[in-house]
């Protein structure tokens, strides 16, 4: 509990952003037609690939001689970009199919 209070005190801006983002996420998704559930899930999945930014940061901060960190960082970048590129591409294909149906 103390840590939580400490975190809020030290990172008041982040705390604001965190809480407000939750509401933005809720509002943005409100009242969507059921046909769009799967494409939206897929699109959100592509967005969660934003974790790749962290993977790149790991690589940038790695010592070139630290093979373990480099290998894991490399893998993290590959997996992250797979999530991003694959995610957006699949969403795009789903939506194309959706249009044809109409």
């Amino acid at each position: 509990m103390n840590q939580l209070i400490e975190f809020i005190r030290d990172n008041i801006q982040i705390t604001y952003i965190l809480i407000l983002s939750i509401f933005v996420g809720i509002e943005v998704i409100k009242s969507i037609p059921a046909v769009l559930h799967t494409p939206l899930m897929s699109g959100a999945n592509a967005l969660s690939g934003v974790v790749i930014v962290g993977a790149i940061l790991v690589m940038l901060h790695s010592d070139p001689n630290d093979y373990l960190a480099l290998t894991l960082g490399f893998l993290a970048v590959v997996l992250g970009i797979l999530n991003v590129v694959g995610g957006f591409a699949v969403t795009h294909r789903m939506l194309q199919m959706f249009k044809k149906k109409k």
């Binding site: 990172n11 982040i14 952003i17 965190l18 983002s21 939750i22 509401f23 933005v24 996420g25 809720i26 943005v28 998704i29 409100k30 969507i32 559930h37 939206l40 899930m41 959100a44 999945n45 967005l47 969660s48 934003v50 974790v51 930014v53 962290g54 940061l57």
Partner: peptide
Amino acid sequence: GIAAAITGILYDNMVMLVGGILVGSAGIIL
């Protein structure tokens, strides 16, 4: 999304934090 947001807090990185939280909350609603 929540995992990405947590990593965003670790690096003090706004795009990861907000992007992750967006996916997290929108994902729950979805």
